[in-house]
Amino acid sequence: HTCEKCSTSIANQAVRIQEGRYRHPGCYTCADCGLNLKMRGHFWVGDELYCEKHAR
């Protein structure tokens, strides 16, 4: 898989955010504040991922 955020190959663990879309665990972050979304879930606003606070 290729990380959709940093565009590099994912060798080990990948986070599947949608069918066919993956990120490194470290790239699974809010587009606004950079908070890691692991164990928090994500919210779509347009084509970007946000934490609950910044999705509003």
Rank of each mutant, 00 (worst) to 15 (best):
H1M: 15
H1K: 15
H1Y: 14
H1E: 15
T2C: 05
T2R: 04
C3W: 00
C3D: 00
E4D: 10
E4C: 12
K5P: 06
K5T: 13
C6E: 04
C6Y: 01
C6R: 06
C6L: 02
C6T: 03
C6G: 04
C6I: 08
S7I: 11
T8P: 03
T8H: 14
S9H: 02
S9E: 15
S9M: 02
I10A: 08
I10T: 08
I10Q: 06
A11G: 12
N12A: 09
N12W: 01
N12F: 03
Q13I: 01
Q13W: 00
Q13F: 10
A14G: 06
V15L: 06
V15G: 05
I17N: 08
I17M: 04
I17R: 02
Q18W: 06
Q18R: 10
Q18Y: 11
G20C: 05
R21I: 11
R21F: 11
Y22N: 05
Y22R: 05
R23K: 05
R23M: 05
P25N: 08
G26E: 15
C27N: 01
C27A: 04
Y28G: 03
T29P: 01
A31F: 12
A31V: 11
D32M: 11
D32P: 01
C33F: 00
C33W: 01
C33H: 01
C33I: 02
G34W: 01
G34S: 12
L35Y: 12
L37Y: 04
L37F: 06
L37T: 04
K38Q: 06
K38E: 15
K38H: 07
K38I: 01
K38L: 01
M39P: 15
R40E: 13
R40S: 13
R40M: 13
G41T: 10
G41A: 08
H42F: 04
H42W: 07
H42I: 06
F43G: 10
W44T: 07
W44E: 14
W44S: 12
W44K: 07
V45W: 09
V45K: 15
G46M: 06
D47Y: 07
E48R: 10
E48Y: 07
L49H: 05
L49C: 09
L49P: 08
Y50W: 08
Y50V: 13
C51E: 07
E52N: 14
E52R: 06
E52G: 10
K53Y: 15
K53V: 12
K53L: 08
H54A: 00
H54Q: 01
H54P: 01
H54T: 01
A55L: 05
A55P: 04
A55I: 07
A55T: 11
R56K: 15
